[in-house]
């Protein structure tokens, strides 16, 4: 039982990182921008929030929880929006190729984060912002004490719930509002959106930058809660970033699917660590690790399925990956 709860906890922590990543990437991709810079943006957001919180924590003997949350979130959002802005400027204004720009952003983002990270590490292999971690991992008061029920649903830091709220909010905005309708049109058929007076560039810029800031929160959560508030030079942010890209496909570009999809990915990813004991599996450990590829394999199967069935609603925005030039002839 304890193993199961631990597994679920771990899956939810893990899922939260990629839920932020995917929610942000869905916002971005819905505008027709395939941003492969997700890992880079998560690096930027994660490191900036860590650095801000770490310096604040060490600069005052009596750090305040509210201030530390504010500093961490603002630093993380600013840094990741900056990444989104670079991508937007290059792909929207200068019409550079989206795939290449995204990959360059990933190189740049992880470079910046690790470069300054080394300064913070100051020769060590990891530094911990201990107070920040307690703030970010503080469980829900009272409710988390409700035995197993509390352990499963309320033992998490506030960002776990923030991720769900953002995903739901994104779902509502995309499916129920004028802005969401316009955004979908921009990603599906920018020429049409343009013809009815929607500013394609504005929507692409805003979606990409807002998307990047949400993606960046994934990095914030990764460092400050999932990673126990430590910054280290060997982090798996990049792998999680790509998993977030996979989750977007798995969720078929629908934010409501992300909420459960992220946790399912988490369950599969941590299968190797908990399942053998729980299920009395006698497989060799090395084989069990194979289960880590399940999220990717399922994603591939989903991709094949929707394309074979030609499910127009599930193939992703039709203009994904293309830049828009009104007078193209």
């Amino acid at each position: 039982m304890m193993t199961l709860i631990a597994w679920i906890n771990r899956a939810i922590w893990f899922g939260t990182v990629i839920m932020f990543g995917s929610t942000g990437e869905i916002i971005t991709e819905r505008s027709g921008n395939l941003n492969l810079g997700v890992p880079g943006i998560m690096f930027l957001g994660g490191f900036a929030s860590f650095a801000g919180a770490y310096y604040y924590e060490n600069s005052t003997p009596d750090p305040s929880s509210a201030v530390i949350i504010l500093i961490a979130l603002i630093c993380g959002i600013l840094a990741s929006t900056f990444g989104g802005l670079i991508y937007s400027f290059l792909t929207i204004t200068l019409r550079a190729n989206q795939n290449v720009t995204g990959l360059a952003l990933t190189i740049f983002g992880s470079g910046i984060a690790n470069f300054f990270g080394v300064q913070v590490l100051n020769g060590g292999t990891s530094v911990k912002a201990a107070f920040t971690h307690t703030v970010f991992s503080k469980p829900v008061p009272f409710l988390s004490k409700l035995g197993v029920f509390g352990d499963i649903f309320f033992s998490y830091g506030f960002m776990v719930y923030l991720a769900i709220i953002l995903a739901v909010l994104t779902h509502l905005v995309i499916s129920r509002t004028r802005i969401g309708l316009n955004l979908r049109a921009v990603g599906e058929n920018p020429a049409t959106a343009d013809s009815v007076g929607i500013s394609v560039s504005k929507y692409k810029y805003l979606a990409t930058c807002i998307g990047a800031s949400v993606t960046g929160l994934g990095g914030v959560y990764y460092v400050l809660d999932y990673g126990y508030g430590t910054w280290s030079s060997s982090s798996s942010i990049e792998g999680l970033g790509w998993l977030a890209v996979a989750l977007v496909i798995f969720a078929r570009w629908k934010p409501r699917n992300i909420i459960w999809g992220a946790y399912v990915f988490g369950i599969f990813f941590w299968f190797y660590n908990y399942a053998p004991a729980l299920l009395n599996l006698t497989w060799p450990n090395t084989i069990v690790i194979l289960t880590q590829m399940i999220p990717y394999v399922i994603t591939i199967l989903v991709l094949i399925y929707v394309s074979a069935k030609q499910k127009k609603d599930s193939l992703g925005p039709a203009a994904l990956g293309l830049s828009y030039y009104r007078e193209e002839r």
């Binding site: 890209v245 996979a246 496909i249 590829m293 591939i300 991709l303 992703g316 990956g321």
Partner: peptide, 14 residues
Amino acid sequence: WKTNETLFTLMMNY
């Protein structure tokens, strides 16, 4: 089936 190759090949890496 015109399956999106950018995303497919990306997933194959992992």
